[in-house]
């Protein structure tokens, strides 16, 4: 296997990891601060992608569309938080799972109602289209590199926000002790809405970027959602650092597994059964990884504290 292929695959894994991080960081923040498990996070990803595609098509600019998509996801997130989610903080996880499962049904059907069931078309902006040549000599799409760079920026931004700002301080306080921030005189309701909207905006951003790469359609959020859950469970629910490391671990494992396993089985099997067995196993690989991590560390790699 040539080195350039391995480098390219590592980048692909990194790019998938970054996308998952954008999803997972919102999920994990919402869990860390409010103790809420939100299945409908994938719907916010979908909202971001649809609004971006729709505005881009009507205005003719990807960037305006992207801004609109992120804002729409944040706004819908805030709205849902005020209307529904806020009633769930005091409930057990079972109620949260069910209510947000219901939200998925409502969002999917509502989106289909508004936009129809045909996939929308969202193109990579001209600025970031095409490919650049990697040091190994093979070309690589600029847009994927841009996603990786953006993910790094978001991770840095989140780190600075959490460690340096007032909002971050309150988030940390909320993670440590929910009663305490109330005692500090912080408006908890607003803080929760803000955190939820922030998570939604990140999901919307991920949806828009991936939508440009793939396709924008109803249900696009669900596979990503499940992967994002795997990520935060591996990383430790509530830990943004865990989400980052878990995301990259899952991204790279999945991408590398998909090319390495079939080749590995090819060493002692004929080609077509090797691809069949190899890709079957590759699709289970990240779940095996998760089971392994949890069997060794039931609280994930970076356990936050005992509030599971």
């Amino acid at each position: 296997m040539p080195l350039s292929l391995i480098i390219e695959q590592a980048l692909n894994g990194l790019q998938l990891g970054v996308t998952l991080f954008l999803m997972a960081s919102g999920l994990t923040l919402v869990f860390g601060v409010m103790g809420l498990i939100n299945l409908a996070h994938g719907s916010l990803y979908m909202v971001g992608a649809f609004v971006t595609a729709w505005v881009s098509a009507s205005v003719g600019s990807f960037w305006i569309g992207l801004g609109a998509g992120i804002m729409a996801a944040a706004a819908v997130g805030a709205l849902v938080e005020v209307a529904v989610i806020r009633r769930l903080y005091a409930r057990d996880h079972l109620d949260q799972v069910l209510a947000t499962f219901a939200l998925i049904l409502i969002f999917s059907e509502g989106t289909r109602w508004l936009f129809g069931s045909q996939p929308l078309w969202l193109d990579v902006p001209d600025l970031l289209s095409g490919a650049v040549t990697l040091p190994g000599g093979s070309p690589y799409p600029v847009f994927r590199l841009a996603i990786i760079a953006m993910g790094a920026l978001v991770a840095l931004g989140l780190y600075l926000m959490i460690s340096r700002t007032r909002l971050g301080m309150r988030i940390r306080a909320g993670e440590a002790d929910r009663e305490m921030i109330g005692a500090l005189g912080v408006d908890i309701a607003t803080l929760y809405t803000l955190v939820f909207a922030l998570g939604a905006a990140l999901a919307g951003l991920a949806g828009a970027m991936v939508g440009a790469l793939q396709s924008v359609q109803v249900g696009m959020g669900e596979p990503v959602l499940i992967l994002a859950f795997v990520v935060i469970v591996i990383g430790g629910i509530g830990s943004v650092k865990g989400a980052l490391i878990g995301a990259i671990l899952v991204g790279v494992t999945d991408t590398m597994g998909r090319i390495l396993l079939p080749s590995a089985f090819g060493l002692f099997m004929d080609a077509s059964s090797a691809t069949a067995v190899g890709s079957a196993l590759a699709s289970m690989l990240i779940y095996l990884l998760m089971a392994l991590v949890l069997a060794l560390k039931p609280q994930g790699l970076f356990p936050v504290h005992a509030r599971a």
Partner: peptide, 20 residues
């Protein structure tokens, strides 16, 4: 394996096994 975990982790790990 799953019952070593609790709460959200249990929800997610049972989900992951089913997905597998």
């Amino acid at each position: 394996i799953s019952l070593r975990t609790k709460g959200v982790y249990f929800i997610m790990i049972t989900l992951a096994f089913a997905q597998m």
